[in-house]
Design a binder for these strands. Structure first.
Lengths: 223, 223
DNA sequence: TAGATTGTTAATCGATTAACAATC
DNA sequence: TAGATTGTTAATCGATTAACAATC
């Protein structure tokens, strides 16, 4: 356990999901500002660039515990680091990727993910042509090895990029292997025990929103 | 009171974004039911499988104008088709993909997208090694050809999968070429005219939610 | 000090959930 | 008919936005 330094035992408010999704946007913007040598930035200044409400930015940032200076704003570097710590982006959270198809490969080659907390240390598949090869620097192993390896390496984050037809059964195998959090990039609604964290990123959901808004705007509906 | 039959001239309610994102989940589930030969399905039956609230399902489905039968439910095939029509998934909406890197290639090879309304008819890049080759059946062209081709083929949907550093400028070029709706798979917040539809699908946003929930649950927070 | 910005509390807005009447 | 389910309206919940006091 360790020494518990935080006095306010609970109630550091759990950030809402919309807030969590905006935090990486701030990080990217702050990196940009850092590269330009900016020292401080205010919420209204960020608001005008990012087209968010400035009050919302202040509130979003407050969940990290950062302190700003009235009339000045926030220290750019400190703010970026504080958000990164809050989200766990400063750690290299080791993850397994299951399903080394095109989308899986895209994630394997997406090394920027490491700056955002995720390090994929192995991929798994059932395709004999891929097994025991490497993609980039990442080994692709037979899925049967998932359980033993997850236990040995204490990996408990999994990325699911299989075909839809095997998404549910694969997810169950991941859970059985000790995976506690699954980033689900299939459009399938997984049925898993409640204590497993599942984050869905469905392409179809986003296509649905895009097309509907597009068609509505074409028909001249209010927005 | 007198007979006030619904005069709903307008107000076919614009579905909320959460509703739009759930509709593809229903489609996938209905396809599954169809493959099993089911004729009818009720909202409570879907609710128990999908772990949604049954009232919410009824409300979601109502935006499409479908009519269900009390005590019976909805005709499975009719319901699926009605949702598909509502979202525009029955049309092959032609789209251009800009940025033929790994993620772009993943989408190019993801032919299931066609069943969900998106048909990518050409990809664009600046890499000479890729230009004038094909990926799958899709030609990869120099980005300079985007404008002329978008006009000639009347394509107004674009998929943005470029590196972050050129996301904004590329998006502006797409808009100049007549693209009206952009599916933005970069984590960059684009600044574009208000009449342009932008749908963000940021991997980082989802990683942020996943990691934070995961770490919170590890620390035994309330959930 | 004056004024811009933070930080917090209150009001508003919108989505979810509950209640209930209609209906097959 | 009886009862389950649809469809709609009302209540609740949570996130956004506004108001305002604190502060540098």
């Amino acid at each position: 356990m360790g020494i518990r330094k935080n006095i306010k035992t609970k109630t550091i408010d759990q950030a809402s999901e919309p807030t969590l999704k905006r935090l990486p946007v701030y990080i990217l913007h702050l990196q940009e500002l850092e590269s330009k040598g900016a020292q401080y930035v205010s919420a209204p200044a960020m608001a005008s660039v990012l087209e968010f409400d400035s009050t919302q930015i202040v509130k979003d940032l407050s969940v990290t515990g950062i302190k700003g200076k009235p009339k000045v704003g926030y220290n750019v570097t400190e703010l970026r680091q504080t958000i990164e710590e809050y989200l766990g982006f400063n750690k290299k959270n080791e993850a397994f990727l299951v399903g080394a198809g095109k989308l899986g490969q895209a994630l394997l080659s997406y090394h920027e993910l490491q700056g955002f907390g995720i390090k994929i240390i192995a991929a798994f598949d059932v395709d004999e042509d891929k097994i025991d090869t490497q993609y980039g620097n990442t080994p692709i192993l037979h899925i049967e090895k998932l359980g033993a390896l997850a236990e040995r390496l204490e990996v408990n984050i999994g990325i699911l990029t299989t075909p839809n037809s095997v998404a549910q059964s694969t997810a169950e195998a991941m859970v059985k292997s000790g995976i506690k959090a699954i980033w689900n990039l299939t459009p399938i609604k997984l049925k898993l025990p409640n204590n497993i964290i599942v984050q869905d990123t469905s392409m179809y959901a986003n296509v649905a929103v895009l097309l509907k808004k597009h068609h509505s705007s074409e028909k001249g509906e209010s927005n």
